[in-house]
Amino acid sequence: MSTPASDGFRMPAEWAPHERTWMAWPGPNPTFEDPDDLADSRAAWASVARAIRRFEPVTVVCGPGQADRSLLGEDIEIVERELDDAWMRDIGPTFLTNGRELAAVDWTFNGWGAQSWARWEHDAKIAAYVSDLAGATKTYASKLVNEGGAIHVDGEGTVLLTETVQLGPERNPGWTKAQVEAEIHAHLGTRKAIWLPRGLTGDYPPNGFGTLGHVDIVAAFARPGVVVAHVQPDPAHPDHEVTQEIVGLLTSQTDARGRRLEVVEVPAPTVLEADGHWADYSYINHYLCNGGVVLCGFDDPRDEIAAGIFRRLFPERTVTLVDARTIFAGGGGIHCVTQQQPKVPVR
């Protein structure tokens, strides 16, 4: 049976040119149970969509009758489909290209490890639906339980993973590290996996909604050989030790081409707690679009420090801060609510 890699497909890096960005629209569900929370979340999602629309087309998948043009505006495309939640990074397809055609991976989705608050009857079908709308010539179904926020690639053969996600019993009981790597490489066109031991403290119970350790809030490639990493400077926060360990691990690693990783540390916002739990506010959960960086903002003194770091990393892009506190209250960030469709051909 053919795989994306054997057919010549790979996942491009996020900084490669995009055709468009896909998002999903918040609807009434356990994540946004309170009507005020739902209204606030829709305003926050719309702010992200409008920030991205300055740089590239945006399509938002909305539940039937749920769209709000007054928030989204007239220049954002809306399509209707039944949804359970609103995290397109995780429920949408992972797009691939062979340089001539678009393809996609449809991972198995089970509500971030079948968590008690999650619903996924409809969301498990969104990847195939979006792949078809995007015009992918082929959609490859993977038996691996995985989400888009649980992977990050450099476009040159390296992928970041987290042991508590792909190897967690909530998702893939009985899978070995070798089996996970084989499935990931076959579907992303990667050759080397760098495993982080875990994610941030706020991403696990009993800290509200979470993913059990997604990598895209902890570390991300900024370009081949360069990784941005979340660091918690305050020893009072449990992520102080967590991020020290992760930074140490990353600095000891080489990528698929044998380059020693350069790690750019990005300090966490100053706030330590949010909604009665350890805050997992992170600037790493940013989104790259054509000519832009959409960066999580927290009305925090370190917002501009982070923006300065990203301006230096991406001098050719415009850095835009968007308040992400409401999105984080729902269990994710700006990267979590977006999914890039690469432009084909990618050169």
Rank of each mutant, 00 (worst) to 15 (best):
A274K: 07
A274N: 04
D275C: 07
D275Y: 11
G276K: 05
H277E: 14
W278E: 05
W278Q: 05
W278R: 12
W278C: 05
A279Q: 09
A279K: 13
A279S: 15
D280I: 13
D280W: 15
Y281F: 15
Y281G: 00
Y281N: 14
Y281R: 15
Y283V: 05
Y283D: 08
I284H: 12
I284N: 12
N285W: 13
H286W: 06
H286R: 11
H286F: 12
Y287H: 13
Y287V: 08
L288T: 11
C289T: 15
C289Q: 13
C289G: 11
G291R: 08
G292T: 02
G292E: 06
G292L: 11
V294F: 10
V294K: 07
L295G: 02
C296G: 10
C296D: 14
C296Y: 02
C296V: 00
G297W: 00
F298L: 04
D299K: 13
D299T: 08
D299L: 12
D300W: 05
P301V: 06
R302A: 07
R302S: 03
D303C: 03
D303H: 06
E304D: 15
I305W: 07
A306M: 10
A307K: 15
A307N: 10
A307E: 15
G308V: 10
G308I: 13
G308N: 14
I309V: 14
I309G: 09
R311K: 15
R311E: 15
R312F: 00
R312A: 08
R312Y: 02
F314T: 06
F314Y: 15
F314H: 11
F314D: 01
P315G: 09
P315F: 09
E316V: 10
E316A: 14
E316R: 12
R317M: 05
R317I: 00
R317H: 13
T318I: 08
V319S: 07
V319T: 13
V322W: 03
V322P: 05
D323N: 14
D323V: 00
A324H: 01
A324E: 03
R325L: 07
R325I: 03
I327M: 03
I327H: 01
I327P: 03
F328R: 05
F328G: 00
A329E: 00
A329V: 01
A329Y: 04
G330W: 01
G330R: 01
G331E: 02
G331Q: 01
G332A: 06
G332N: 02
G332F: 01
G332M: 04
G332R: 03
G333C: 03
I334N: 00
H335S: 03
